[in-house]
Amino acid sequence: MLKACLGAAVVVILAMLAKTRNYYIAGLVPLFPTFALIAHYIVGKGRSLDDLKTTIVFGMWSIIPYFVYLTALYFLVDRLRLEASLALAALAWLVAAAILVSVWLRFH
């Protein structure tokens, strides 16, 4: 129940920010490291310090798929309907994330 309420609160905050003069800040709110905090706490409590540091480094590399998503969306919104642009940008994220994981597994 708490997770659902937190999720709803984030959606409300995003909707409110989108209507303000500083609407672009709505793009920053989803990047608050809520899940990263949880993941790092769980890994940090249940695994070694080296495992936690590996998780942190992988998290740094995970910025790449998000950048791919934003880049794809930036170019697609001029050419397609918003829904199609979002879907294709999400697909681009999935492809980039899959490549990241496969490269990580190969070299780590």
Rank of each mutant, 00 (worst) to 15 (best):
L14D: 00
I56G: 10
L88H: 10
G7L: 00
V68S: 04
L86F: 14
A4M: 05
T54E: 10
F35E: 03
A4G: 00
K45R: 13
L91N: 02
F67R: 02
R81Q: 13
T34Y: 11
L49Y: 10
I42K: 04
D51L: 04
L28H: 03
V29S: 02
L91Q: 04
I25A: 10
S102M: 09
N22K: 10
A8E: 01
C5W: 11
L2D: 02
A98G: 13
A15M: 01
Y24L: 05
L17F: 05
I25Q: 07
F35C: 00
F58W: 04
Y24F: 07
I13A: 11
S62N: 14
F107P: 00
L28I: 08
D78H: 15
L100R: 01
E83N: 08
D51V: 04
W93E: 01
G46L: 15
M16N: 12
P33F: 15
D78Q: 13
T34F: 13
S85W: 12
Y66L: 14
Y66G: 08
L91P: 02
I99P: 00
L14H: 02
A72T: 09
L73T: 08
L37N: 04
A96E: 12
V43K: 02
L28G: 03
G7P: 01
G46Q: 15
L91A: 07
A18Q: 04
Y69Q: 05
W104G: 05
L37V: 07
V103S: 04
A97L: 14
R79I: 09
L105D: 03
R21P: 00
L70N: 08
D50K: 14
D78M: 13
I38A: 01
V10A: 07
I64W: 11
G44P: 09
T54W: 03
A92K: 13
L70Y: 11
A72S: 15
W104S: 10
L82M: 15
I56Q: 11
Y41L: 11
L76P: 08
V57R: 14
A98V: 11
I13F: 05
I56V: 11
F58G: 07
E83Q: 10
L82S: 13
G27I: 01
P33S: 07
L37T: 05
I42F: 08
L2E: 04
R81G: 14
T54A: 10
L70S: 11
M60C: 13
S102D: 06
H40G: 00
R79G: 01
S85D: 12
T34W: 13
A97F: 15
K3L: 12
A9L: 14
V77T: 13
V12M: 04
H40P: 00
K19L: 08
F35H: 06
A96M: 10
F32I: 14
L82R: 15
F107A: 08
R47M: 13
G7A: 00
L31W: 15
S85H: 13
V11W: 01
V10G: 02
T20A: 02
A8G: 05
A72Y: 06
L73D: 05
Y23D: 02
V11K: 00
W93L: 05
S62A: 15
V57T: 11
I56Y: 08
V12C: 06
K45L: 10
Y69D: 02
L86N: 04
